[in-house]
Every structure is written in structure tokens, then in C-alpha cells.
Simulated assay, not measured.
Amino acid sequence: MNLTLQDLAWHRSVGHLVETLDKPGFWLALVRLLDQYVPFDSWVALLFSNGRPQVFAECPGEDGGPDPLFQDYLKGLYLLDPFYIASREAPGSGLFQLADVAPECFEQTDYYQRYFRLNVVADEVQFNVQLEKERTLCLSLGTKGRFSAEQITLLDLLRPWVAGLMRQRMTFERELLEQATPPAPRWQSRLEETVEALQTPLTARELEVGRLMLSGCSSKEIARKLAISAETVKVHRKHMYSKLGIKSQSELFSLFLQAQS
């Protein structure tokens, strides 16, 4: 068996990471190692559950402090994140690309235009490690360009090491894990309050159609997810817009943002 210098360097670096598993700088050391093989522009290590995501570590904002856009994400925008949605609908371990999980019209959404491309930039991949209690440990990497097929292949080759290290790290994240899971924001209730004055509350189906619209699902995708016809989806959308006194998806997104404040 012939090992290259690059092979030796990788194994030496992994050995160093094992030694830092219980240290505060573990996540930074891990992403710096990955960046040597596949460059990226942003990253975050977090835990998805049925409540708000819990953040273990993240890359700093441009001023070196917390990224204000990412704080908006944690307040409730994560409910529109295709990676978060996928982790709830089809939980599992692996390496996932944005193209694997994004709905058909994702790049046309206000979420993509006003948050994703400004904060996550253009493309994203995510290492997922499925844990007990419907929790998913995630390491997300974002880039201003697009990850190439070769880069994705390399990340997938590194995935067993990365996933193993991530899982072992959970032993040393007890303090965060012992905290109660923060409750998910009820943006639906804000919409309901908006229309209560009109005595025309939104139905559960209308709320679900609205959420799927905001996440980037086309009428056909919504119809398939809810087992209804595309025409019925359009009827729900028309009724919802009428009740809320709005005329566009952008106005619906604005109501969604108001519900997070």
C-alpha cells in the first residue's frame, strides 16, 4: 500500500482533531481542515430538532461579531430553510447538496433573495449526522460560487471521518444539549391574529399552503405534498390572500417577517 504525502497529511490532521474533541476550538479546527481541501466562504455547526436550531459554532460576520442576518434565521427564518425542512420530513445521515433538498422555485423566493444569497451566498452543502430524539447534527458549508462535482465527490469521500468526529464531539456538548429545546416560533398565530379582526381566520390547510409557497414549492409540489390538486392549491392561495388583504407572495413574506419580531 502506497500512501501519498497528502494522505499522510490528512491522517495526521485527523489525529490532531481527535485530540481537540474536548476543546472549545474543535469546530473551527474541523472547518479549517476541510477548507484546505474544498474552499468555502461560510459555515455553521448546529443541531436541528422540532424546536429552534441550537448553534454550536459559526463563522463570524464581516465585523468579527455575530452575523445579524443569521440571527434573523434563528428567530424563525429557519422554518423556510430547505435543509431544515428536509431534516424534519426525511431525517437521515449523509452529505446533502442544496440541489438535493431545494424546492423547484426556491431561487425565486423572497427567502432566497433577501436572506440566503446574502448570508449563505450561492451554494451550500451539509454534513448531517442523525441522532436520537429526532435531532440532526449538521455542519453546513456555503460558497459564493457553486461547488463542483469534483469538490462534492471529495467531500463525500471525507464524510465518514467528518461524521465520526461530529458524532464523537456530541459527548462534549453536554451543556447545550441539556438545555430545554427552545420552542419553535408560531408565525401562523401572527397571521391568524391578523385576520381575526376580519372574523375570517385562516384554515390549517391555508397556513400549510402558505408555508410551502414561502419555502419555494411550486403549485405542483404543494399539491403532491398535500395530496390535493394543483387547482385546489390555487384556490387556497386565493382565499388566503383575500383574507390577509394582500396580493403577492412578497407581501406574505413580509407578514412572516413581522411574526418573528
Rank of each mutant, 00 (worst) to 15 (best):
A204F: 00
T203L: 04
P91N: 03
A184D: 00
H11Y: 06
Y37F: 11
K133E: 15
P82E: 03
A259I: 14
L191C: 01
L118I: 08
P82I: 01
L212S: 07
P91Y: 05
Q54G: 05
L3A: 14
R224Q: 14
D67T: 13
S42N: 14
H239C: 03
L69V: 02
E173W: 10
A227T: 07
L244C: 00
S87Q: 05
S140G: 11
E58A: 15
Q6K: 15
A45C: 10
K234T: 14
S215E: 00
V129Q: 13
L46V: 06
L139P: 01
L141F: 04
G142Q: 01
A90D: 09
T136N: 13
G94W: 12
Y112V: 06
V129Y: 05
E193Q: 15
G142S: 12
W43V: 03
I222L: 02
E206A: 00
A122C: 10
Y78G: 03
C138A: 15
L154S: 07
S87N: 09
C105R: 11
K247N: 07
S49E: 15
T171G: 06
F40R: 08
P60W: 09
L226I: 03
S148L: 06
A259C: 11
Y112D: 01
S219M: 06
Q36E: 11
S189C: 07
R12L: 14
R211V: 02
Y73P: 08
F127I: 07
M1F: 13
L21K: 06
L158R: 10
L79R: 13
L28V: 09
A204N: 13
L69C: 04
R117G: 01
L79P: 13
R88P: 06
P68N: 03
D156M: 05
F172M: 10
P201L: 02
L154K: 05
H16L: 14
L5D: 02
S49A: 10
I228K: 12
R135C: 09
T232W: 03
H239G: 04
H236E: 11
Q71L: 10
V121M: 14
Q179T: 03
A86G: 05
M166F: 02
L30T: 03
V44T: 13
S261K: 14
I222A: 03
L207K: 09
F147G: 03
V120C: 08
G94D: 11
M170P: 11
D156I: 01
E208A: 09
T232P: 09
I152M: 04
A163S: 13
K247V: 04
E196V: 02
N119E: 04
P39W: 12
R135F: 00
N128S: 13
P24N: 08
D123I: 13
A180N: 05
N128K: 14
L3N: 02
L158N: 10
